[in-house]
Simulated scan of single mutants.
Amino acid sequence: MAGAGVSSPSKPTRLRATVWRRLEGLGAIYLQNSAAALPASVQAERALRTSRHDILSLAGSAVLLNRRWSVGRR
């Protein structure tokens, strides 16, 4: 599972829409307004890194997370 926490600047609004569409196209599930979870894949990681770069270049903030789930283990 891959995830992102983003806070993009309110202007330009096209950046927010671009990031949202990019993540939605990869199957993202939004956990909150600025937190999304995606199935782990090379394509998702590439899109997250691109989105992070775009957001940081406009003085926003972004955190990328990667999590492997272990089910039934103690």
Results as ranks from 00 to 15, higher is better:
56 L>R: 11
12 P>F: 01
3 G>W: 02
19 V>F: 02
29 I>M: 12
22 R>I: 04
9 P>W: 01
19 V>L: 09
33 N>Y: 11
12 P>T: 04
17 A>Y: 11
32 Q>N: 10
24 E>A: 15
19 V>M: 04
39 P>D: 10
36 A>T: 12
60 G>L: 00
16 R>F: 01
58 L>T: 13
50 T>D: 10
71 V>Q: 04
62 A>N: 02
36 A>E: 06
70 S>Q: 13
41 S>W: 06
21 R>A: 06
17 A>T: 08
68 R>I: 05
29 I>N: 10
57 S>D: 11
73 R>L: 10
32 Q>W: 01
55 I>Y: 00
21 R>V: 02
44 A>R: 03
38 L>A: 01
13 T>F: 05
30 Y>W: 15
14 R>M: 05
71 V>H: 06
21 R>S: 12
46 R>A: 14
21 R>L: 07
62 A>I: 08
34 S>W: 00
20 W>H: 13
42 V>L: 09
4 A>V: 15
37 A>S: 12
72 G>K: 04
58 L>A: 08
70 S>W: 13
33 N>I: 05
72 G>A: 03
16 R>V: 03
68 R>L: 05
21 R>N: 12
13 T>G: 09
13 T>L: 10
6 V>D: 00
26 L>Q: 14
57 S>W: 02
8 S>R: 14
28 A>P: 08
16 R>Y: 04
52 R>I: 00
2 A>P: 02
43 Q>N: 06
21 R>W: 03
23 L>F: 11
41 S>Q: 09
35 A>Q: 09
73 R>P: 08
35 A>W: 08
4 A>Q: 03
16 R>H: 07
61 S>C: 03
42 V>Q: 08
41 S>F: 07
52 R>K: 09
68 R>K: 09
51 S>P: 06
73 R>I: 11
19 V>R: 05
29 I>E: 15
63 V>N: 10
14 R>K: 13
72 G>C: 02
20 W>E: 08
3 G>R: 01
68 R>S: 08
53 H>E: 10
29 I>Q: 14
3 G>S: 06
13 T>W: 06
15 L>K: 01
21 R>F: 02
56 L>K: 07
26 L>P: 02
33 N>W: 05
46 R>Y: 06
9 P>F: 06
24 E>K: 15
22 R>M: 13
42 V>W: 01
14 R>P: 00
27 G>M: 02
57 S>P: 00
49 R>T: 06
10 S>Y: 03
